[in-house]
Design a protein around this nucleic acid. Structure first.
Lengths: 149, 149
DNA sequence: GTGAATGCAAAACCTTTGCAACTGG
DNA sequence: CCAGTTGCAAAGGTTTTGCATTCAC
C-alpha cells in the first residue's frame, strides 16, 4: 500500500522541485510516494498501477512526465537492463544493480568507494566520466534483498 | 567499405555456427563482415545499411535474425545504453564501454582482471553472476579510440 | 493571471512475429 | 530432401508528442 509522504520526504521533494524551477503537484507527490514506499525498482507501468490506487484519475503520460522530472532534478535514477522497460530507483548513493534472471527483480548492491575508484582508474587519458553504470546479471539463491538495502 | 571475410575469419564464423547447429548463409557472412570490418558498435539499422552495400536484397528482419544468432553463438555481444537502439560488439574480451554523450559513439575500455575481480567481490553471498556490464557515460576530449582498441 | 502540468489519444520508434518461398548441407 | 533461413508485411510494446483543459504559484 502507498503511504502519504511524511514531512521530511515532502520537504525533500519540494526542495528538489523548487531548485529545478518545478511545481509541486498532487500527481508528483503520488508518484514520489510510490517510489519511496516500496524501493523495488518499479517500471513506469508498475508505478502507474500503484499510483492509481490512491489517485484513480492519473494518466500514464503524467507518470512518464513525473519520472522524467524527478530524473532531471536528481531525485531518482533510471535503471535500464537490456531492452526491458526502464525501472526507477530512489537510491542516490553509489551502487550497482543485480538483476535476477529468474524473477527479473533488480536489487541494489553496495559499491565501496575503493571499488568505484579502481573502476574510474581504468579510463584512459582524455576520457572523462561522471556516470558509471554497473549491472550484474545472474541468479540469486535468495529472494531476500541484499544485507544493506 | 565492407570487405569479404578472410580465410581465418570465415573459419571462425563457420566453426561457431556449426557448434550451434546453424547454417552458413551469405547473409550471415555479410553481417559478420560488417561487424568485424568496422568495430564501431553499429546499431541494427547501421548494420543493415552497410550490409546492403554488398547485398542489396537483404531485409532488416534478416539482420535482426543474424545478429540474434551471433549472440546465441557467442560471436558478438549486445551493448545497450539507456533506451537507445541496441549496438553490437565483436570484441569478446572482458571490457567496459564508454559512451561519449556528445557524439553517441561507444568505445571499448580495457578491463584489467584485478578490477573485474574487485567488482565480483562486492556481491553478497547468495548472488551469483557471470555477466557484468560496465558502462561509463561522459565526454571524451578526443575522437580517437582508446589506446588498446 | 499565466506559464506549466495534466489527460487523452495518436504517433513514433525499435523489435518481434507470421507465413510463404527459398536454400544450404 | 527438408529443417532452417529469408523477405515482406503486419503487429507488438514502450515511450513520445500534440493539444485542449486545468492548475499551482
Amino acid at each position: 500500500m502507498i503511504q502519504n509522504l511524511n514531512e521530511h520526504e515532502r520537504e525533500k521533494l519540494m526542495a528538489s522541485l523548487n531548485k529545478g524551477g518545478q511545481k509541486l503537484t498532487p500527481q508528483r507527490e503520488a508518484v514520489f510516494s510510490v517510489l519511496i514506499s516500496k524501493r523495488d525498482h518499479p517500471t513506469v507501468d508498475e508505478v502507474f498501477q500503484r499510483a492509481r490506487e490512491t489517485m484513480p484519475g492519473m494518466s500514464l503520460a503524467t507518470v512518464y512526465n513525473c519520472l522524467e522530472t524527478f530524473v532531471a532534478c536528481g531525485l531518482v535514477r533510471q535503471v535500464n537492463h537490456e531492452r526491458e522497460p526502464t525501472r526507477y530507483c530512489p537510491n542516490l548513493a553509489p551502487h550497482a544493480h543485480f538483476r535476477d534472471q529468474a524473477t527479473g527483480r533488480v536489487h541494489d548492491i553496495e559499491l565501496p568507494p575503493e571499488v568505484l575508484n579502481s573502476l574510474r582508474s581504468i579510463l584512459p587519458p582524455g576520457f572523462n566520466s561522471e556516470v558509471i553504470e554497473i549491472s550484474f546479471h545472474g541468479q540469486a539463491s535468495t529472494t531476500e534483498p541484499p544485507p544493506h538495502a
